[in-house]
Design a binder for these strands. Structure first.
Lengths: 225, 225
DNA sequence: GTTCTGTGTGCTGTATACAGAATTATTGAT
DNA sequence: ATCAATAATTCTGTATACAGCACACAGAAC
């Protein structure tokens, strides 16, 4: 079973809203609710064991997050991203990551950089085992960590929001062995540039990396929405 | 005065949710609901003439937007932004606007650029009349328009989201006459650089402009949250 | 005088009820 | 058999009802 969630046991103690949000996000990311699907409040509420009221509140939250779209008198629909929109989002992510990388090279602590390296090493491990799911998660975690090194809350938040929207799409993309290998190699260069605090080089590698990410998914996407 | 019916007729045709969202945003931006205020659902619902159910849905939407904060068992509180957070957001806005400006110089249509110039001229008019409110709105519209020239939906959306959060803060800032004059001058340079499609120069001016915006508001802010 | 505890009030969180729009099924005519 | 019109059903949008938690205040114990 494809479990993309980073939920933990704490969820029982959090307000119901958070639990519903996690579940809905997972259902969307895992493809259980494919893009274009109308969210039937009655059915989902029954499935999740909650009434429509908190469920609707969660849906409104997701709408603001951009995962679903609200259509008057017709409820919520899982948002369908066209090729153009994905390209746009990846471009913004590229801008954010490049800038974050530059800032990180200038002011990140050595410990912070070591933390990214540690994630990278764990990712290499997953690559060696061909554990796609774990690799995928660590991959995202590394990009998130690099952004976090810039120590700018707004930057991290915006980046995370865009990354969430793309989770499903990037998860689908099952690249071939050689593309996977080159992605790993790029990551290695990335970490090296960060460790030597070479901002220009890191920015360049990140730019190339994100461009490749785009090329990797472009063909799997529906044409213009 | 605070009644949904006194806004324009269109509101009747839009879903109630949008109307509530607009009203709440306005109440927050205008300072009617100062940062730190607990949103009393009963009272606000009464004031707006709606029941708690759609109101709560709107509040969840605003929470995802970052204007309010949800506190378990204690409802929603108008988010208080500290100096650090505002600086972070302005820095991200700077990054986004600079990049948008560069793209705009490369690929905006002449008509698009002319549109920005038109907004600028109207803004100069407001400056001449010392109409602060109209000036303020056109100022924001110009920045939004420049970002829009990059023709990247995700970029515009992220920019708008951050700008919304800062609206209240920038709205408070009543700069003195000389600072106002220099801000106008900067805008003039900005438009000129855009018209001559000088990406480097536009980027530099935008960077300076946003840095000044930060210096203009920094003293009015509460210390670290 | 201070601290602790019990009670009351108000508010949030969730469920249910109801009205109206949208969708689907049905019936009748061509 | 196809299509139109209409009836039936489903689902959304909103209001209301109720349970439980949080905070405030008052009184008792020390």
């Amino acid at each position: 079973m494809t479990d993309l969630s980073d939920t933990d046991a704490r969820i029982e103690r959090l307000p119901l809203l958070d639990a519903i949000l996690s579940r809905l996000r997972d259902m969307i990311i895992e493809g259980q609710l494919p893009p274009g699907t109308r969210l039937n409040e009655g059915q989902i509420g029954l499935q999740l064991g909650v009434s429509r009221t908190p469920l609707r509140e969660a849906i409104k939250y997701l709408a603001s997050e951009g995962l679903v779209e609200l259509i008057p008198s017709r409820g919520a629909v899982v948002k369908q991203f066209g090729a153009r929109e994905v390209r746009d989002m990846l471009e913004v992510i590229r801008i954010l990551e490049q800038q974050a990388g530059i800032i990180a090279c200038a002011q990140a602590t050595d410990a912070g950089i070591a933390g990214v390296r540690a994630l990278h090493d764990r990712m290499l491990d997953c690559y060696a085992r061909r554990d796609r799911m774990a690799y995928y998660k660590l991959n995202q975690a590394i990009h998130t960590a690099i952004v976090a090194l810039a120590a700018n809350g707004a930057l991290s938040e915006v980046h995370a929001r865009l990354q969430t929207r793309l989770k499903r799409i990037r998860f689908i993309g099952h690249e071939g062995a050689e593309k996977w290998a080159s992605a790993v190699a790029e990551h290695e260069q990335m970490i090296a540039a960060l460790e030597s605090r070479d901002a220009d080089r890191l920015s360049e590698i990140l730019g190339r990396h994100l461009t490749l990410a785009w090329e990797r998914v472009r063909d799997d996407l529906p044409a213009q929405t």
